[in-house]
Simulated assay, not measured.
Amino acid sequence: MEYQYPFDIDWSTEEVIDVIAFFEAVERAYEKSISRDDLMNRYKRFKEIVPGKAQEKTICNEFEESSGYSAYRVVKKMKDVPESEHITMK
Rank of each mutant, 00 (worst) to 15 (best):
K79C: 06
K79G: 08
I87S: 03
N61A: 06
M1H: 06
V81D: 06
D80E: 15
P82T: 07
I87G: 02
P6E: 08
L39F: 01
A25E: 05
A29T: 02
D37H: 07
S67M: 04
T88V: 05
F46A: 04
D38P: 00
S12A: 10
I59D: 00
A54G: 08
D80R: 10
K90I: 08
V81R: 10
E14C: 02
E83T: 10
D10K: 10
S35Y: 01
K47V: 08
V50R: 04
I49R: 02
E83N: 08
R45W: 02
K32V: 11
F7L: 09
E31T: 11
K79H: 12
Y5I: 09
S35Q: 09
Y5A: 05
R36D: 00
Y5R: 06
V26K: 07
V19E: 03
D10H: 06
E24Q: 15
V75L: 09
K77C: 07
P6H: 05
I20E: 12
Q55E: 14
E24M: 13
A29H: 01
M78C: 13
Q4L: 13
E2S: 13
Y5C: 06
I34P: 00
S33Q: 12
M1E: 14
R45F: 02
K57V: 03
E64G: 01
V26P: 03
L39R: 00
E85Y: 10
G52Y: 07
T58L: 15
A21L: 14
E56Q: 15
A25P: 04
G68V: 04
S67A: 07
K53D: 13
N41H: 07
P82S: 12
I34C: 01
I9N: 11
E85A: 08
Y5M: 10
K32C: 11
E85N: 05
E48N: 10
S66K: 12
E2L: 08
A54L: 14
V74L: 08
C60N: 13
Y30S: 00
V50M: 12
